[in-house]
Structure formats: C-alpha cells, structure tokens
Design a protein around this nucleic acid. Sequence first.
DNA 1: ATGGTTGCTTAGCAA
Length: 255
Amino acid sequence: MKIITWNVNSIRSRLERLLRVLDRHRPDIVCLQELKTLEDKFPFDEIGSAGYHATVFGQKTYNGVAVLSKSEPSDIRHGFDDASDDPQARLISAQIDGARVICAYFPNGDTVGSEKWTYKLEWMKRFHALLERDCYPSQPLLVCGDTNVALDDSDVANPQNWAGSVLCAREARKALADILDWGLNDVFRQKHPEGRLYSWWDYRQLAFPKNDGLRIDHILATDVLAKKCVSAVIDRDERKGQQPSDHAPVIAVFE
DNA sequence: ATGGTTGCTTAGCAA
C-alpha cells in the first residue's frame, strides 16, 4: 500500500500537478492539506476520473483537507468531533483498507507568543487528546499531514535561522514529541536516520535552489504499520518547475 | 536589513 501526504497550497492551482502525481505514483491513499476552497469548488470530477474517491473537509480561502483513496472510505469524521467546534478545517479522517487514516493540517502559529501561536499549541494538545480518546496504539493508524513542526535540527537545513520560529520552538517540538510518544512512529526518519532531507522550502529568498528547507510534513504510523513500512521518500522533483507548491509530497510504502 | 513570494481575493491576510 502506497500513501502520499502533500500540502498542495490550493487544490485549484495545483490540480494539474496533482493529477500528474497520481498518474506517476498511483498511490492507494493521498492526504492533502491547504485546499483553500470549499467543497463546491473541489475538483471531484477530475479526481474521480483519475480513479479516486475524495473525502473533503473544505474551507473558503484558508486551510481545507482531503483524503483521496482508490478504495471506498468509511466512517468519515470531520474536525475533532468533540464538544467544542474548531472554526478551521484542519482535520479529516476515514477508515480505508483496514486502517484509520487521519489527514491533518496543524496550525502554523505565525510567531511565538502570538494569538495564533496559542491556538497552535492548544490545537496540538487537542489532537493528542483525540488520539487518547478515539484511537489505540495497538491498532493500524496513520497520521499524515503538515505538522508545521520540525522535530529536531536534523530536519532543518539552517537551524540557526529557525531557532526562534514557530516551526522549531521548544514547546512546539515538545507537543509533537508528545503526540509521537502516544504511539506513533515517524516512518521517514526510520528509513533516513541521518536527516538533512526536507519537505518544505519557502517561496522567498531562493530557499529551494539553496536547499534551505525543513521537514515538516510527516507520515506517522502505529507500530503494527510502521513495522511494515518498506520505503519512505520525498518527491523533491515535484517542488521544481513552474508553479510548484511550496511543499513536496512525502511518500511511504507499506507491505 | 522585519525584507522576500505565492494564493485568494481584490488590499490585506496567511503562510
């Protein structure tokens, strides 16, 4: 089973590239973030013609997540599905091919100390609580998406430039480490313990040509699935050429 | 050096 996670930075701007990614990799499951559209403008027809079901939680202008799958998904859930409402569309999950798949777009947080930063940390705690409440580390579960956190400096090309940022701040790293400690494995790191491979490069400052990147997009798996992971790669070529997303797809294959 | 680029929406926000 092949799964891809990709922050597309607008599904409508990236549709042609997405269709090429589907054609090139033929994944079984794709988790998409930053759709930047409501369901009414989501390209269901084109994605359906490519052979995929689309499970979508959209939002106008910002955020928005989707799970594409060759198999029909079941038990679809939007957001945290708990008492209080999250006004932002950042979370969708479904049962697919015997596994629970959670597609997540963690808040960026703007700057440490800002209101958005507080929202980010609260959101991450709430996500941890969701795992505690609804999921089991012993069951097959995949958490895929843009976590907007680099776990440590081996995932950062120029750590000194990002030391005080929301992507690398101690509290954010701790919050993500806590989520992993619940019972999730970073399968990319399992395959590439040396680090120095990145999934996101800022559009500005020639970050991509300079390879000034961070690995902030993750495929996290419970033990039963992580054990079956045979490869994990970043499709760096997808960041090249005309009108790329600022993120590259992350791809994992499970036996 | 508080810059710079992209996308959505149309001047300003978010990343």
